[in-house]
Structures are given as C-alpha cells and as structure tokens.
Amino acid sequence: MRATTGLGSGTASVTTRDRKLARALRRAGIDFAATVACGIVAGVSHALAENGIAVIDATREEEGVGLCAGAALAGRTPALLLQNSGIGNSANALASLTGFYRLPLVLIVGARGGPTEFIAAQRPMGRAYVSILRALDIPRVTVRAARDAPVAERAVRRARAESRAVAVVLPPEGE
C-alpha cells in the first residue's frame, strides 16, 4: 500500500513498512530524529513526522551524528536516518563521540548498492559499510518488510539499555 505525502520538505512514497517501522520506533522510545536525504529512508522520515517526532535535516551524516549526540545529552533517544554511504561520512563521529561517550543512537540505514542497484558507484560503499559497522562494534539488524518492524523495536530498546549505537538496515523494498 503506497501513499504520497508532502509533509515537511520534498515528497516521498510512504509504504506500510515505513509506517509500521515509524510506529515501532516511537513505541520503543525514539523522540528525536535527524536525516540526510536518501530515497529508501525518506518514507520513514515522513512517517516519523506524521507520528509527531521532530526530524531535523542535516547537511551531512557526520553533522547528524553530532545533532543526535546533543539530543542524547539532553536526555532524548535519537534516530539518524541515512544512506549506507553516510556510514563512511560519519565513521569518526560514531567512534569518538557516540561510542566514546556511550550515547544511545539508532541508525536507520538505507541499503544501496545491493543486488537490484542501478547506479554502479553505489556498490563499493554498499559492500564496505557492513565492515565499517563491524569495525565500530555497531550491531546490525535488517527490516525487509512491514512484519519485521518488531526487530527495530528491539533494536531501539537495546540502544537505550546498553547506551550504544545500533543499526537498522532497510534494503529497497522487494530486494
């Protein structure tokens, strides 16, 4: 089921997976979000806004990690919505800020560069980001379809309980 919304800036298709995921994130305690535009996570961003959660547009993923760290220091549980290439753009901040201070952070990662990728330049980071997350000791779960939303809920609870970053990977729907 798809619907288009013009909430915030830009337009995006909001799918059932996006809605279920956004509700799961809110239920588990996400109350602040930042994003750098990515076609895969755009629908989640809109669904979060529909659920009353602030979504701040960052100019770069590293900046988004900083915004989320500030929110966590103010007592919130933040999510950063980004494309997997942005894991490369933010690796130092994930290590020396989120990791060093042990701050909660849920990364919602649009997984470009997979089997259905249509832009060849997406493939190198599509392979590398998994190793980068592993090197940063950031656990990773995957939400392929709407029925996987409870996996994201558990990931948020883990980020809060263990005060750490966790990654929720979203492949393109149907991949």
Binding site: E63, G66, A72, L73
Partner: peptide, 21 residues
C-alpha cells in the same frame, strides 16, 4: 560538556542539546 574527539561537531552537539532543553 567537554569534547575529546569528533572534531568539527561542537556546533552540531550544541544544536542538538539546545533543541532539547
């Protein structure tokens, strides 16, 4: 809040805190 790493992000951390307090 003393930053000990993540060069470049003082302002971003500040914005994140300011939106929450």
């Amino acid at each position: 809040f003393y930053m000990l790493g993540s060069m470049g992000l003082a302002s971003s951390i500040g914005i994140g805190v300011a939106l929450g307090v």
